[in-house]
Design a protein around this nucleic acid. Sequence first.
DNA 1: GAGAAAATAACGTGATTACGTTATTTAAAT
DNA 2: ATTTAAATAACGTAATCACGTTATTTTCTC
Lengths: 216, 216
Amino acid sequence: MISKKKIELIIIEDNTLFRKTLTDFINLSNEMNCSYSFISCEDALAVMEQEALDPDIILLDIGLPGMTGIEGIVHLKNVSPSSKVIILTIRDDDESIFKAICSGASGYLLKDSTSDKILEAVREVLNGGAPMNSSIAARVLKMFKDFAPGQGDYSLTKREKEILKLLVDGLSKNNIAEKLFLSYHTVDAHIRKIYEKLEVHSASSAVAKALKENLI
Amino acid sequence: MISKKKIELIIIEDNTLFRKTLTDFINLSNEMNCSYSFISCEDALAVMEQEALDPDIILLDIGLPGMTGIEGIVHLKNVSPSSKVIILTIRDDDESIFKAICSGASGYLLKDSTSDKILEAVREVLNGGAPMNSSIAARVLKMFKDFAPGQGDYSLTKREKEILKLLVDGLSKNNIAEKLFLSYHTVDAHIRKIYEKLEVHSASSAVAKALKENLI
DNA sequence: GAGAAAATAACGTGATTACGTTATTTAAAT
DNA sequence: ATTTAAATAACGTAATCACGTTATTTTCTC
């Protein structure tokens, strides 16, 4: 039999039953291996540093004694940059999801996921995917939409957009004129049109509107 | 046998083979029904309006003759507001994903998904989830992170942040002075400090930096 | 091919800004 | 208790800006 290198996991989870069950399940498969599991990020970090662990995947709970899993992500990625983190938690509030994603989690599963789903998620992450429960995905989409700037359309022309872009970059009218090989007056005229269309009266406001509503 | 109301689907897809195969597969299940399928949004909209169709789910391709699926979402939601749209496409570029989400898609599947996955996705959407391939989810997360502002810290003081906020709102120095019951000179001094800390030389640049890096 | 919109350019002026420089009074930090 | 940082304020000036007004050329669009 050809021996293929197993996927190395570590689990950080304070619920002993859940941790043991999951660890056992993983070790039953012959494609994955979990030799280390911890009840806190602090423990995990200490051992990982000492033993130079570099797991493929870290399954991470959020509600942990000591630092939260979310705080832990950054530290874990520090001692083991190539590890991918999959959050495995009961928390499905927007803030947890948001922070986990922003801290660099590669997946986000709820604890009611079946063990099979969890193993599948591990495979997906290693394939560049970002597995998550569809209810989590729904929240992410909602937050995403909320962030996603209200693509207002002020029917700016190409030139106007170009000049607005340069305003956003902090250039003065003279700078812009130079850069575009235009007369100062032309740039001035364009900027007036921009102000008119955006209903503003200063470069700052135009820049603010451009950035807030993604006009560029 | 108790007859339960079936989930009503419509499919908008210009590839005939794919459309027929999927329609047949759906109709084989006894929980879903697809009596209408179309090759373009225009066709779908016309019939839906005329026959007052109100499907639970619309499976929608992006690359269609006439208007794109993405453009179609808004119109479809218009004639049938309660319908949920699941995008079913080969396109996995950021722009398509972004626009689809912003237009109100409830799910985003690639065409290489199995028929079973598609039916599962339909159920998930009706349960409030947002099914998507994990590769799509990964891109969404990436975009999400990119949006999620890089909380740069320029150690602005409370007052400086307050004034920066007002600059973003488009107020002039005099306006700000009035608003905060300060002398013009004080505001001027604060703004200079802000410029120094942000390493900029104009209000526009400060505003741009503030918005890009969420300093306020 | 006529009309509309966009892009180009000019002149002037009062308002506003950016910045050099200096200084006093609180409020933290050590 | 003393240094440090923050908040307040002032004067002056050259540069820049916002905006009223007008005008030509180029490029769409119907």
